[in-house]
Design a protein around this nucleic acid. Structure first.
Lengths: 359, 359
DNA sequence: CTGAAAGCGCTAACAT
DNA sequence: ATGTTAGCGCTTTCAG
């Protein structure tokens, strides 16, 4: 009881398999009478063309891929908030942007997030099934990427230009953090700033720290060599890192600049638990612009990335390169915006959404 | 300059293609010495297994699919809010739930939204590349589904049980709307309610209307045969339908019960433009629970669907059936919740998110 | 406009 | 442990 194939349809419709194929690929090259007969038989038999066979024979799939790391905060998954749309994070927004853009270009999107187990399998899984794909930084070992990108268009999102012949997309991490830190120093008059960094293998987090350093230097403050503390980007890490920081001797900082929003949220929690008020005692700022940041109290001041646009740009680059495989590698830097809310000491912003914005 | 294949690797590593294949599928069945040699050659050559060939030969892909209609409100896409996460709609939440669940089960997710052009191609595209897939109601012609589902596990989300041998998922539309309408009537003392319906081909919208009718009946009010006006689910439709309603002779209704949130948002705009205050002059309620509903002013009272759970349940059903192909079709009804905000006349709720909820 | 035939790259028995 | 041999279902010249 295997699924019907071109052969079954061909036989039943009294034509060759080539004709069946044509009916689906170039309907116009088949006499309409023949075509109708084939189509009729096809539905009668429940024939569905095999995408795999098609891809194999034609060397193209009409599918674009996206690989991203398993960013999910475990604690977020487990509690009752699992159904809260506000939890949506970085990768989801990029997915969304890519899906939209892919659709416009007539492509479907294959999404794969790495999970415990070989990352090898992750890329292989995707790479073998798409015409090209995007990778979020730190998802795939550079070496694997190096190999695969020799065979397939790959665009690297939000990482360093690890491989120089890849198309590459990034946001203005350093400049964005520079501007944010400068805001804290100049507009709020803060001087003792602490930086809650990410892991050293994250180029984005490092770039943000560099921006922070530059701001300190520009303001004539001491320039730290290293972040005051680090975490692995989750809320839990942010809490832990903040606790560690507070336990150190000396007074708490006047401001905490966090490498991403999730850790900033964790910092908010840790500070609250220590009885410190934000922003009166300590200002807190994040980076990313996740939706949850605007819902918490105090609402989170942050540097907002154009996440959706990243996804769209990735698809655009992919499609471009598919059309022109030998074009020289292209790199784009997308701008970020400053989102000033309560946690830095700025006044609570006016309602951010209202009917006026809807139409 | 074709991509290297098993043959190239086999020749260079002095083994047969079968061995190369084994190295990737069952590494343990190959002597480690041989394996290392093959792997070395593979990376040297830049070999990446073809997912298509694999799928063809093994009849399984490790990919699950999702088809949904192109719900996007055009006006939402076009304006500057394109990067606003609050715009996220129904299908996106389901996507998210499916992606998460698929990942847990070791599957990747293929997403395809219909676009102008043959829906035929949409299903074919997905169906031929996945081990099973989910379809949002009204995305794919029933006839096509009927055919495809004979060959592949399909779960239908949020539609009627159009095809009785399909696994099927829906939410408590009628009960949810019944409860909402009853709230308006009993708790707010409203009596002249108008229903802004969807298109007649949407079973969800119709079910909601039935729930509305039941509430009217239960309260001893006149029971309408038909929605007072209808729209095609977008904000623009909601505005237009509301304008039409208001232009009709007679006084405006005391409440507008809308078949979905987007139209309710449109209704809010139309009422505002007519100088009517919500909820003082007219109460407005929606259905779905899209994020934007909580950001608008007045915030939207609505019946919230467990969208993410729908996605997860879809994957679970798919995986179950993949494991047990002949299991009898299963149908699940997911509960909805009442979300009372300002637009029905309830007091503005306490801040919905705070640190307390985060850990 | 239609048919014949040669693959596309891999997996899966079945041998050895 | 490894090799041989068939396909998997379709696209694609090349003929006719």
């Amino acid at each position: 009881m295997g699924a019907p194939t071109v052969y079954d349809v061909a036989k039943r419709a009294q034509v060759s398999i080539a004709t069946v194929s044509r009916v689906y690929r170039n309907p116009d090259t088949v006499r309409s009478q023949t075509r109708d007969r084939v189509l009729a038989v096809a539905r009668e038999l429940g024939y569905v063309p095999s995408g795999n066979a098609r891809g194999l024979a034609s060397r193209s799939t009409g599918v674009l891929g996206l690989c991203f790391p398993d960013y999910a905060d475990p604690e977020v998954e487990d509690d009752g908030a699992a159904d809260d749309p506000e939890q949506m994070l970085y990768a989801d927004e990029i997915t969304r942007g890519m899906e939209r853009a892919a659709r416009r270009h007539g492509y479907a999107l294959l999404i794969a997030a790495s999970l415990a187990g070989g990352p090898e399998s992750l890329v292989a899984k995707v790479a073998g099934r798409v015409d090209g794909f995007a990778v979020l930084a730190r998802t795939v070992p550079t070496e694997d990427l190096e190999i695969i990108s020799r065979r397939l268009p790959v665009v690297m999102i939000a990482g360093p230009r690890e491989i120089d012949h890849l198309d590459h997309l990034e946001v203005a991490n350093a400049d964005g953090e520079y501007e944010m830190a400068t805001h804290l120093i100049r507009d709020h008059g803060l001087r003792r700033l602490a930086f809650l960094g990410g892991t050293t293998d994250s180029p984005d987090a490092e770039a943000r720290f560099h921006g922070f350093q530059r701001a300190c230097a520009a303001a004539g403050l001491a320039v730290p060599d290293e972040p005051d503390t680090r975490g692995n980007f989750t809320q839990a890490d942010g809490r832990a890192a903040t606790d560690r920081l507070l336990q150190r001797v000396g007074q708490p900082p006047e401001a905490m600049v966090c490498a991403n929003d999730q850790m900033a949220l964790g910092a908010l929690q840790a500070l609250e638990r220590q009885g410190l008020r934000v922003p009166q005692d300590v200002a807190v700022v994040g980076f990313d612009g996740i939706p949850l940041g605007r819902m918490v109290r105090p609402s989170l001041t942050t540097v907002t990335q154009p996440m959706r646009k990243l996804g769209e740009a990735a698809v655009d680059l992919l499609v471009e390169r598919l059309g022109e495989p030998n074009r020289s590698p292209r790199s784009m830097l997308l701008p970020v915006t400053q989102t000033r809310r309560e946690s830095c000491g700025c006044p609570s912003p006016a309602p951010e959404a209202g009917l006026s914005r809807l139409g």
